[in-house]
């Protein structure tokens, strides 16, 4: 090796030091790549992320996302100029569907993040500390899980008033119990393991055990659930948008677009059809990705 190869040295050193980790990573990647459905999921999710990131720059009519009106070309069917047709004020539906990706990404990320940030700590505490506190946490979780999330979210939006922000708040408030269940179960199993016992025996503090020993071992199932939840949260938010409690038109949210386009069925079918297709492909992507991740990260919990 000459001095010129220096920039590569850190990587080589890291690889040498973490040969087993690198091999494991490679194994995971190969297992993942062998499954066609996992790769399809990854492709759909990457495509979705790309569209969400580049949206405003790749759409043909950027001004249509900000409520532009071209009445002379309203309700035109799909064509070379307007791939998905136009709506009742003549805006390009393709443009609005593309811009909707970013909205959906934000919705999914926010709900999943807030839910995980509430649910994971509660689950770890309930599982590790147990006792009366753990019992209370689990009973509250059970009660929340006993009402379908969408119904409870409708109730909360009913109290807060319709709107995209309130819809996100409502869905976040009802989404966390699943994480408590998941993490509590995992923590209970880990607590009895020898390495935790050993840490306790040498006098490691409780907080340190939770953060340094239990939490890292919960990361895999949490990642899998989070990937699935990105899809289901987007689906739920679109549902709220559809019944008129979430995003309000002309905001480019897919559920609200479908709901609005419903008034123009059956003649102007493209209005509702394409946003729905976008939701389907996005949710499908996150679900397949989640499945694929579970197969490599958490194979025992496969259902």
């Amino acid at each position: 090796m000459t001095g010129r190869a220096l920039p590569l040295r850190p990587l080589a050193v890291w690889l040498a030091a973490h040969r087993s980790a690198a091999r494991e990573l490679g194994f995971y990647a190969r297992t993942f790549a062998r499954s066609a459905s996992s790769m399809l999921g990854l492709g759909l999710v990457l495509g979705f992320l790309l569209v969400a990131a580049l949206g405003p720059w790749i759409v043909p009519y950027p001004e249509d996302g900000r409520g532009a009106v071209h009445l002379e070309q309203k309700l035109e069917p799909p064509s070379a100029r307007h791939w998905f047709g136009t709506d009742e004020v003549g805006t390009d539906i393709y443009t609005r569907v593309i811009l909707g990706a970013r909205v959906s990404l934000q919705i999914g990320l926010l709900i999943t993040l807030v839910a995980a940030c509430i649910g994971v700590p509660l689950g770890i505490v309930a599982g590790y500390v147990g006792g009366a506190l753990g019992g209370v946490i689990m009973r509250v979780t059970d009660v929340f899980l006993s009402v379908p999330a969408l119904v409870l979210a409708i109730a909360i939006v009913g109290a807060l008033g319709p709107g995209i922000l309130n819809a996100i708040v409502a869905l976040s408030l009802v989404w966390w119990p699943g994480y408590v269940r998941l993490v509590q179960g995992k923590t209970l199993a880990l607590r009895a393991q020898t390495f935790v016992e050993a840490a306790r025996a040498i006098g490691t503090g409780r907080l340190r055990i939770l953060v340094a020993h239990i939490l890292p071992n919960c990361v895999s199932p949490i990642t899998v659930k989070a990937s699935m939840d990105m899809g289901t949260a987007i689906l739920a938010a679109a549902g709220l948008g559809f019944i008129g409690l979430g995003a309000q038109p002309p905001y480019p949210e897919w559920g609200a677009m479908i709901s609005h386009g419903r008034n123009y069925l059956p003649t102007w079918w493209w209005y509702s059809a394409f946003p729905g297709l976008a939701i389907y492909l996005t949710v499908l992507g996150f679900n397949l990705l989640g499945d694929g991740l579970r197969d490599i990260l958490d194979p025992r919990s496969r259902a």
Binding site: S37, S272, A273
Partner: peptide, 25 residues
Amino acid sequence: RFVSVSGVAIPAFWLGLMLQLLVAL
């Protein structure tokens, strides 16, 4: 498998609308 991955990904309200469009209208 195709049905089972699609079933949980399709928005129910959209599926309903499309069925209305196709079968009823």
